[in-house]
């Protein structure tokens, strides 16, 4: 089943053209990786998919589960199972992690006309997810990302991924700022998440992450467009030869 179909997408940020005709399609059960140098438009793609108000689509289209995504609000996309793991997760002092995740789950359940998870069920799920990610349960009581280290913030994003169980997860440089142990923990969480019905879009600067989460397709993004796609070996070649190799060839 086709999850995502991006067609000739052009996007501007503050009047500046960032994406210049990006096309991409992801099917259920697939993991795609997007690599590219800094400033190529990787994070723009992630934010546009989630519906960040600062990004303007000037032409092209995004279809998600056969729905025109551009017309939907940020939260409506979330209700449909689109999840973005932020490159820079936002700190929200005063709102506990628990409170925040319960509110998110309840809002999504309500939108889907499902019964909300009971408080006890939720506690169990949250604790188990925290454990899988090597996070102290006290972590759930703290303010959302408040005073978290870089690594803790990224793990908190994956914690939410495991709890919310979206259909398409867009992970924006989730590996940046993580040491090797943390990368393994986070990767294990992501691998536990993937199944035949969902899809993952990994955005990363380094090939390193792909040693742990093996992608089905690797795309190279440069100057706002995908300039090459291939299998896992493309990432390895990139790592060896650098991005200049692509622009040279």
């Amino acid at each position: 089943m086709r999850l995502l179909e991006v067609d000739d997408l052009h996007v501007t940020v503050a009047g500046q053209q960032i994406l210049t005709g990006l096309s991409l399609s992801i099917d259920a059960g697939e993991v795609h990786a997007i690599m590219g140098p800094n400033g190529s438009g990787k994070s723009t793609l992630a934010n546009v998919l989630a519906g960040h108000p600062g990004y303007e689509i000037t032409s092209g289209s995004i279809r998600y589960k056969d729905i025109q995504l551009e017309d939907l609000k940020v939260e409506e996309r979330a209700h449909l199972g689109l999840f973005l793991a932020f490159q820079y997760p936002v700190e929200i002092p005063g709102v506990s992690n628990m409170e925040f995740m319960k509110a998110a789950l309840d809002a999504q359940a309500k939108a889907r006309n499902e019964e909300p998870m009971s408080a006890i069920e939720f506690m169990k799920a949250a604790r188990s997810a925290a454990q899988q990610l090597d996070l102290n349960p006290d972590f759930l009581k703290r303010g959302v990302n408040e005073g978290f280290s870089g690594g803790e913030k990224k793990r908190n994003e994956i914690l939410q991924l495991l709890l919310l169980q979206p259909t398409l997860a867009v992970l924006d440089e989730t590996d940046s700022g993580l040491d090797i142990d943390a990368i393994q923990t986070v990767s294990a969480g992501i691998n536990r998440f993937r199944n035949a019905d969902n899809g993952v879009l990994l955005i990363t600067h380094y090939q390193r992450l792909l040693d742990y989460i093996v992608p089905d397709v690797v795309h190279v993004l440069a100057n706002g467009r995908i300039i090459r796609s291939g299998d896992k070996s493309l990432a390895v070649t990139l790592e060896e030869k650098g991005y200049t190799w692509l622009s040279a060839s």
């Binding site: 108000p53 940020v74 939260e75 925040f100 809002a107």
Partner: peptide, 19 residues
Amino acid sequence: AVFYLRSRGLSDEGARAML
């Protein structure tokens, strides 16, 4: 922060009230 909360499914108003 509003965007972060909305991306997790909260409505715009709900996100603002929570914050």
